[in-house]
């Protein structure tokens, strides 16, 4: 590829170009698709996905086959926990936030300990955790009302708050800035990249590899919990498996954004673009009347295609 076109190899540029292309396509298929109101709605959905993908991104960056398949379960559980903690009352919000974060951190901690102390591969560990969470959700839902969102939370997620954007968009922007700061400007960030690109060298240079890996899973749990909390505000009331769709989608968003599954490189800015891209794609599929099952197939195929394109990066690892 010539020098002039080399920017095409930057996944972020590719993702942004695809976003514009998909918006144009969507508007052609269904006029009004790219209207301001509609784009805002897409961004809210993208923010929910993007917050889950932040945790997924961290776990994947940390390398050693890092992946968190339990995010969807944590999102669902946290939405239920939040709904029951606030039960439609604004006064319950602080307690709900605490309960959600604690829930996410707890299951993230279990994942992290399983991966580091018990040496269970992340894929297996988090898949098992997903099974546990799904079972737990069934148990919780039996006979117990799943709770309602407080008005302030719904407003935070759906009503314009500042410059016409709702609070959740601002929260997402803040998370984006925080992630960029942590990854690029803190020793913690350098260590995340270090364990992702050469775990042994990082260990020999004094990086507490195990503690770091546990921390990444905890953060992933917390981000999923925050997303579950916001999701309650978006849908008004929580129902089981509301988070199910986030597992595959969060992984695709990360890979679309230029973080290879082997970890060690990439970042969150690309993941944010990946999340937006994915939500637009999903919306287009809905517009042309493709059912949920069809959308899942398209998502799965997208991930496999991405692996084909970016897969070669894996071989470059020393």
């Amino acid at each position: 590829m010539s020098q002039a076109l080399s920017f095409l190899r930057n996944p972020l540029v590719v993702a942004l170009a695809l976003i514009v292309a998909l918006l144009v396509l969507g508007n052609a298929l269904s006029p009004g698709f790219a209207s301001g109101q509609q784009i805002l709605r897409l961004l809210i959905v993208a923010a929910l996905l993007g917050i889950v993908a932040a945790g997924q991104n961290l776990v994947i960056l940390g390398g050693r086959e890092g992946i968190d398949l339990s995010v969807g379960g944590v999102v669902s559980l946290s939405a239920i926990v939040a709904g029951n903690a606030m039960n439609g009352l604004d006064a319950g919000i602080p307690a709900a936030i605490l309960a959600c974060v604690a829930t996410g951190a707890f299951f993230g901690l279990l994942n992290g300990l399983g991966v580091t102390l018990l040496r269970i591969p992340p894929l297996v560990m988090t898949l098992g955790m997903l099974g546990v969470l799904q079972g737990l959700l069934v148990v919780i839902r039996q006979g117990v009302p799943s709770g309602r969102a407080a008005p302030a939370l719904s407003e935070f997620v759906t009503r314009p708050f500042l410059l016409g954007l709702p609070g959740i968009i601002w929260l997402w922007i803040a998370i984006g800035l925080l992630m960029a700061f942590i990854l690029n400007r803190t020793v913690l960030g350098h260590r995340i990249y270090a364990i992702g690109s050469n775990e042994h060298a990082a260990f020999m240079a004094g990086v507490p590899v195990r503690r770091m890996r546990v921390l990444l899973f905890v953060l992933s749990g917390v981000f999923s919990a925050i997303a579950g909390f916001c999701l309650l505000g978006y849908s008004g009331s929580s129902f089981a498996n509301v988070g199910e769709q986030y597992m595959l989608a969060s992984i695709i968003a990360v890979v679309l954004g230029g973080t290879p599954l082997s970890g060690g490189k990439g970042g969150y800015t690309g993941t944010m673009a990946g999340a937006v891209l994915l939500v637009i794609l999903q919306s287009i599929l809905t517009t042309i009347n493709i059912e949920e099952s069809g959308r899942q197939m398209v998502f799965g195929a997208t991930l496999l295609l991405l692996m084909l394109f970016y897969g070669r990066g894996r071989g470059l690892r020393a």
């Binding site: 990249y193 690109s197 050469n198 042994h200 060298a201 990082a202 490189k265 690892r317 020393a318």
Partner: peptide, 9 residues
């Protein structure tokens, strides 16, 4: 390669 270089960084 094993103990020193943090590849790609």
């Amino acid at each position: 390669g094993r103990d020193g270089v943090i590849t790609g960084r």
